[in-house]
Design a protein around this nucleic acid. Sequence first.
DNA 1: ACTGAAAGATAGTAGGC
DNA 2: GCCTACTATCTTTCAGT
Lengths: 155, 155
Amino acid sequence: MSTTEIDNLDREILRLLQKDALLTNKEISFTTRKSIATIHERIRRLKEQGYIERSVAILNRKKINRNLIAFSQVLLNDHTSTTLAKFEEDVVKFPEVMECFQMTGTFDFILRIATSDMDAYHHFYRHKLATLANITSIQSFFVLSETKSDTAYPI
Amino acid sequence: MSTTEIDNLDREILRLLQKDALLTNKEISFTTRKSIATIHERIRRLKEQGYIERSVAILNRKKINRNLIAFSQVLLNDHTSTTLAKFEEDVVKFPEVMECFQMTGTFDFILRIATSDMDAYHHFYRHKLATLANITSIQSFFVLSETKSDTAYPI
DNA sequence: ACTGAAAGATAGTAGGC
DNA sequence: GCCTACTATCTTTCAGT
């Protein structure tokens, strides 16, 4: 981690690019009232220093048949680093697993699972997730509706 | 929802752009062995038909001081549509709330909260979230480590 | 649907303030 | 750190298959 700090111009650029990664330098230079070359150099630095990790297209999941989102809370029966690491190694390989976080509290991991429907989730649960070693329990919760889903941090 | 289906070329383009939204048409045309104009037209259609919702820059949250991610499970004390809608309306306004889903099961909503640290979460909890109307309980779980966090659906 | 090529716009670089 | 000006590269359009 470098000691470099970002200023208000950097923050404004990050704010804009979090909303739309395809903005041209020209558009950003117009909004921020700086020259195109300045914007170009700032964005280069923000990437180089790791503030911007990557730019991605966000798809409409219903159009590509991911109608069901589940959160699955997993509890393991032992917490040696070997067991934890093995679970993580195996679970991230499943294409249904969009996210996996190790958590504090009454369970060990929370997974975000995307499937086409309940049948597909059931199949994932029975034939993939529940087959992994050292699982004590899995509790599943399903998304009824998406009120807010944002990738942009307020800056 | 239109009746239009996508073919293998569309799927390959979506796969590529989910990983890197800044790929040039030229690069995609090289990978897919199609002409630049073909790629250009395909991407235009994928956006127009709503497969691609938007393109965004993904930031390194630790560089911008969002070190703590919490999942907060919220239970309300009544489930009239008015109460549900009011909660949703209010909760999405908090900048700490990255995501809000209404859920099946033993609680009503799950929130993903991003703050700088536990003090900031505590402040959010006490002075923002817990002040909303009709809340019965809030249970908070904190991310210890991020094993996988992907925005790209396998296609 | 796809292609190649032209025209217009943008990214990226260099030199100066 | 920011600017103008220049060149390389890319996007976008279109006539042709």
